[in-house]
Structures are given as structure tokens and as C-alpha cells.
Write a protein that binds this DNA or RNA. Structure first.
Lengths: 221, 221
DNA sequence: AGAATAGTGTCTGTCAGACAGTATCGC
DNA sequence: GCGATACTGTCTGACAGACACTATTCT
């Protein structure tokens, strides 16, 4: 077994699943039910199954489905972690993905094959994580931030329809810095990634807000 | 054998080694000496050897050393490619790296274990490539461009000392668009990544140019 | 009217492209 | 002087932050 691992490394996928809740970027942690690192907090992950997975991306999708019954729209590679010491089972490769869960789908998350679930502050998870997952989490947060910084809007973290203020709060939560309302809105008069639904919010005790959605041709983050 | 591959995928690393020659971004291609895909052009690559490689990065370094006797300063992950069909040997993972070779080290490249070497235009290699290497090359070019675009200067493609004009020509070759000389230079009065050597070029039949080098604290691309 | 949030108009400083002009070498 | 390349100064338009202003709802 360990001899075979010398020739064929263990390959697993780990997923940093993000959401924005209470104006804070949060990541889903699971408490592991099995060895190794049983009872420790970790990113949801699993071993690649070449006979079942068409690709690493497909494996990540399967892991999310199996562990928390979630199908995400946005799932992308961050980077690979590798070496002999990062997993006690031997030389291993951990392919890290990040995924974004819209705020209105937080309740879709179900617990399977793990002891516990928690939405933790992505920048200060509050638990010591198993394996090299603390490092992986930092890399995933950096990847998401970089995309938002370079104008890839975090539309997949919002419901299908949203107001510009909601979009701004979400960006602010990810980058942890405030934006000027006027400048922020100005960027969308030109940005083809958004379009108005024509409708407005109702029932608030203030002026109604215009409701937007991602453009039909939209496929970016 | 193929049964084992079902459980443990083949893991290999491929490297897009870039240089800038004749004001053109070029990539090193090798003509494969062994099966599979014998006699076809490809990016230099090799199978991961967990018993010898401390990490995937280390494997990429070994491949470059074995195939072309080159030790590069800059080597970084691009992304992983995976699936059952990209390599005829079965379900496989190909970890793609890119590396940069300074112009003054082009002659250090030696041919080992391959039939032929060629510095090909990175955007139009002129050969049909083995495996999924055409797709990998496109991804690697995009990664390098993105880094140069976001102000990560391609200092590792230049000799240790260089003039601002050389730097500008190199950036232009990678991004394939001209820069305004004045604006380009202005960016370095502020950029701490560069410092002057105090010396100037000699022997040209024109005004001598100031010679720069990367700052001592430099570690970026 | 007042609170609350949505949304706009305008000023201003910064910065990048454009481009003309100057500097310094070999011949 | 002339050709060639290095380097600088200045104008200008685009744009982003700042911030005050208006708009529309509910109570």
C-alpha cells in the first residue's frame, strides 16, 4: 500500500465554499467523521475517484454533492498543494477549488458523512484546521479577492436578482474596504455584465431600489 | 496496470518555458523520443516521481534539468488538466507550470532524451502538439500575460542588468502592443522593483542608456 | 414632517497617453 | 552636422474619490 503510494500519489480535492452572510465573507468548514484527522475541522474534501469522476472539477462537484448536497454554479481551480508530509497517508496532491454559494441558498446545505458544519469567518476561522487547510484557505481567499478586485463581480454570491446596494455590500465584505456609492454605481452604467429587470423593491420603509440581474451572456465569476 | 490506473491516476508535470527572442515571445518545444506520442512536438514534461520529488514544483524543476539541463529562477503553477482522454495511458492529471528563461541563458539549453528542440512562437507554434498541450500552451501564455499586465514585470526574462528600452521591448513582445515611452518610464520612477546600477551602456553609436537591475528585495515574477 | 435608503451631479486631483522637444553618443 | 537612440516636459482627456444634493417610500 505505502509502496504503491510511492508510485501513485494520493490525489484529493478540497473545496473552499464561500458565502457572504452578515456582511462577512464566510467559508464552510466540516468536522471530519473519519480518519485521518478525525474530529478536526477542515475544508470539505475527498479522494479522487477516476472511475467516477470525469475530471478534477467533476470530483470537486461530487464532493460538494456528497458532503453537503449542494450544487454550485461557480467552481474553479485555485492551485495544487503537494508533498510527502501534508497528509499522514503519504505523498499526496491536494487540488484546491473555490466555490460560491448565493445567499438565498444557504439553507440548501445539508450535513452528510461529517460530524458538524459551520460557516466560519473566512479570514479568522476560529478553529485549527486539519492537514494544510489553513494555508489552502488563505490561498482561496486571496484568489476570490483578486477576482473581485479585477472587476469580476461576485455575482454568484448573490441571489439571481439583487439591488446595487446589495452588490456593493457584498464586494465590501470580500475586500474589507468601503466603496464610494457614486463611484461604485457609475461603474455599472458601462459594465455590460449587469442589466436592469425594470422592477423595483417593495415593502421597505424607504425609496424602492431598482432590481438588477446578471446579463444573459454572463458566465464570469 | 490499467486497473491500478483507475485507482491512482497518472500524474505528470508539463512546463511551458518562455523566452523573448527577436522581440517575440517564444516557447520551448521538444520532439518526443518515446511513446506515447513519439515523434510529436510537445511541451517538455515528465511523470511525477514521488520517491524523488519533494513536490510538484520540484518535479517540474527536475524535468527541466533532465530534459534540457536548465535551472530557472522563476517557475510557477498555472493550472491542472485532468481526465480520462487527455493521455492515451488512461486517466491522468497534467500539472502545468510556466518558467522564464533570461535571454542571456538561451545557450544553456541542451538536448537530452528528446529528438529535437525548438524555440517556437508562443502564440503560433507551427506544429500540432501532442496530448492537450496546445490548450496548455494557450493557458500558459494567458497566465504570463496576465502577470505582466498587472505590473509584474518580466524581469526574469531579461539578463541581470538591462536598460529601460530592453524592458519595454520585452513587455511589448509579451503583450503584443506598443507602450508610450514616456509613460512606460514614468512608472519606474515610482516602482521600487527596479534600481539603477549607476552605469551606462558603452560602444553603441548613440547616446548611452542607463543600466538597471532588479531591486535586491525583488522576488516577483 | 422625519427617518431611511435610493440615486444623481459636480468638483477636483491623479494619472496615463500623446507627442514634441532636448541630450549624448558614433561617424 | 547627421543619424540614432536615450530621456524629459508638458498638455490634455478620462476617470475615480469625495461629498453634497435630490428622490421616494413608510410612519
Amino acid at each position: 500500500m505505502s509502496q504503491r503510494r510511492q508510485l501513485y500519489p494520493l490525489v484529493s480535492v478540497d473545496v473552499a465554499l464561500f458565502c457572504v452572510e452578515d456582511n462577512q465573507l464566510k467559508v464552510l468548514l466540516v468536522k471530519r467523521a473519519t480518519e485521518p484527522e478525525q474530529h478536526r475541522w477542515a475544508l470539505p474534501g475527498g479522494v479522487l475517484q477516476p472511475e467516477n469522476d470525469a475530471s478534477l472539477l467533476d470530483a470537486a462537484r461530487r464532493v460538494l454533492d456528497e458532503k453537503i448536497s449542494v450544487k454550485v454554479r461557480h467552481l474553479a481551480q485555485v492551485m495544487a498543494f503537494s508533498g510527502a508530509t501534508r497528509d499522514p497517508r503519504g505523498w499526496s496532491i491536494g487540488m484546491l477549488f473555490y466555490a460560491l454559494l448565493p445567499r438565498d441558498q444557504l439553507n440548501a446545505v445539508e450535513r452528510h458523512k461529517v460530524e458538524q458544519l459551520e460557516w466560519a469567518n473566512a479570514e479568522a476561522p476560529g478553529h485549527r484546521l486539519a492537514f494544510d487547510h489553513a494555508e489552502q484557505l488563505r490561498a482561496a481567499v486571496a484568489a476570490v479577492r483578486q477576482r473581485v478586485e479585477s472587476d469580476q463581480l461576485p455575482l454568484h454570491l448573490l441571489p439571481a436578482e439583487f439591488t446595487l446596494t446589495e452588490l456593493q455590500r457584498t464586494c465590501e465584505a470580500i475586500l474589507r474596504k468601503p466603496f464610494d456609492k457614486s463611484a461604485f454605481r457609475r461603474r455599472f452604467k458601462e459594465n455590460p455584465g449587469l442589466e436592469s429587470t425594470g422592477r423595483r423593491t417593495e415593502g421597505g420603509r424607504q425609496r424602492p431600489a431598482e432590481i438588477f440581474r446578471a446579463s444573459s451572456s454572463f458566465s464570469r465569476e
